[in-house]
Simulated assay, not measured.
Amino acid sequence: MARFHVNIYRADVADNVSTVTQFILLGFSDLPNLQGFLFGIFFIVYLINLVGNSFIIVITRLDPALQKPMYFFLSNFSSLEICYVSVTLPRILFNIGTQNRSISKVACATQTCFFLMLGATECFLLAVMSYDRYVAICNPLHYPLVMNPIKCTQLAAGSWLGGIPVQIGLTCQIFSLHFCNSNQINHFFCDLPPILKLACGDTSVNELSVYLVAILFAAVPFMLILASYTRIIATILKLPTATGRAKAFSTSTVTYLRPKSTHSPGTDKLLSLFYTIVTPMFNPLIYSLRNKDVIAALRKFLLRR
Rank of each mutant, 00 (worst) to 15 (best):
L126H: 06
Q67W: 09
P32V: 08
E81T: 07
A120L: 04
T21Y: 08
N100M: 11
C152S: 15
G36E: 11
F55M: 11
S130A: 15
I56D: 00
G40L: 13
P32W: 08
K105N: 02
K151R: 13
C113V: 07
G97D: 13
C138G: 12
K68V: 14
A156P: 03
L25P: 15
P149C: 07
G158Q: 09
D30R: 08
T110H: 11
V85E: 07
V135W: 08
L26P: 02
P69H: 02
T60G: 05
E122Y: 07
A109P: 04
A136D: 09
I82M: 09
V20S: 13
P69T: 00
P149M: 00
N16Q: 09
F39T: 13
C83Q: 05
T112F: 07
L155S: 02
F72I: 03
V45F: 15
M147R: 01
Q35S: 14
T121M: 10
P64T: 06
L50C: 07
M117Y: 04
S104C: 06
F23Y: 12
V13P: 00
A65W: 00
Q35T: 14
Q67Y: 05
C113M: 14
I41Q: 11
N95G: 13
V106Y: 08
Q35W: 09
I96H: 05
A136Q: 06
A107V: 04
Y131R: 07
A14C: 06
F42H: 12
S104P: 10
V135C: 10
R61Y: 09
I24K: 12
V106H: 03
L126G: 14
S29F: 00
A120W: 06
N95Q: 15
S86D: 13
F39N: 06
L80M: 00
L145Y: 09
K105H: 03
Y143E: 10
V85K: 01
V146Y: 10
H142T: 09
S130M: 15
M129S: 03
D132A: 06
P90L: 10
S79V: 08
N49C: 13
T60W: 01
L80I: 00
L50W: 15
V17F: 05
F39Q: 06
V45H: 04
P64F: 11
T88N: 10
